[in-house]
Computed example of a mutant assay.
Amino acid sequence: MKAPHVLSLDETLDLIINEHYSISRNGDGELNLMMGEAIDFQHKDSRLAQLMREALNAKVDKYLSCLPSIFVDYSRFNDYAQKYFDGYLRTKRYYYYSLAKAPVYGDAFMSRFYIDFKDKLKSRQQVEKLKRIWEGQDVVLLEGKDSRLGVNNDLFDNTKSMRRILGPAESAFDRYDELMFKVEEVVNKDTLILLALGPTATVMAYELAKKGFWVVDIGHIDIEYEWFLMGATSKVAVPGKYTNECNAGKLFGTLPEKALTKYNSEIIAKIL
């Protein structure tokens, strides 16, 4: 079977920055859900699985579904990541190839730029390019209630404005219809929508793109940025922020009061 054609990371970012493409991201968790399995932070759901399969191969103007760029070569990743991808593809490669039928995909690592890579010097260049997506933009960010993207760091300091809609920290698809309704109620189509809601963001980006919104699924970007700032060499928990991939705990500690005050002032809705 033929491997999916995945654009480079720079090609993916160029489409978002220069042509305002909407994107949804698919990784190992999304594939598992498409196959009817559950993952740690999203229980299985037949409607979610169907929408994810639809979004994976959808033909929508200026919309691009993304897959991890691991099918041909993953030598740029560190030893731990290489071992993981090797084991995962050994059992799941067939399912990726059989489900992914679009002519081209973006690189799902566009927002996961640091911890799994060997050459961490390139991360600075990539994060600067990522920031160009929302530079000077009015932004509405949909995120899990404990994610707190950009809080207590400068990730979104170059936006024109930032508003937040909070969803559940886990199994956000349970509130999917309410989240979609709220977006359509309060967001103008000249506003950039950023999503960090796990697998729910994958289908939400697709369905909002169909309606003419500019939507970018940036899940995990803030935790990657925090790891980048601290020079982490392994996945560690970030105080005051949900960290689903860390054994040290999903949420511990707190954030400075000043940062939380600003964060709370940006929240326009909570659907929990």
Rank of each mutant, 00 (worst) to 15 (best):
K2M: 14
E11K: 10
E11N: 12
E19R: 15
H20K: 15
Y21T: 10
R25A: 06
N26G: 07
E30A: 05
E30D: 13
N32M: 13
L33F: 08
G36R: 05
F41C: 04
L48K: 10
M52I: 05
A55K: 03
N57T: 11
D61K: 15
Y63L: 03
P68W: 11
S69P: 06
F71R: 09
D73A: 06
D73Y: 07
F77L: 14
Q82Y: 07
Y84V: 06
Y84N: 04
G87F: 05
T91Y: 11
K92M: 15
K92S: 10
Y97T: 08
K101T: 14
P103A: 05
D107H: 11
A108D: 06
F117S: 02
K122Y: 05
S123R: 02
R124E: 13
Q126K: 13
V127I: 15
Q137I: 10
L142F: 14
E143I: 01
G144A: 08
R148M: 07
R148Q: 11
G150K: 00
N152R: 04
N153M: 11
D157W: 04
R164I: 12
I165N: 03
L166F: 07
A169N: 10
A169G: 11
A169D: 07
E170M: 08
E170V: 13
R175V: 00
Y176K: 01
E185A: 09
V186L: 13
V186P: 10
T191L: 06
P199Q: 00
A209F: 00
K210Q: 14
G212W: 04
V216F: 07
H220A: 03
D222F: 01
D222W: 00
E226Q: 08
S234Y: 12
K235L: 03
V236I: 13
A237N: 08
K241F: 10
Y242L: 13
N244K: 05
N247I: 11
G249Q: 07
G253K: 02
T254M: 07
A259Y: 00
N264E: 14
K270F: 04
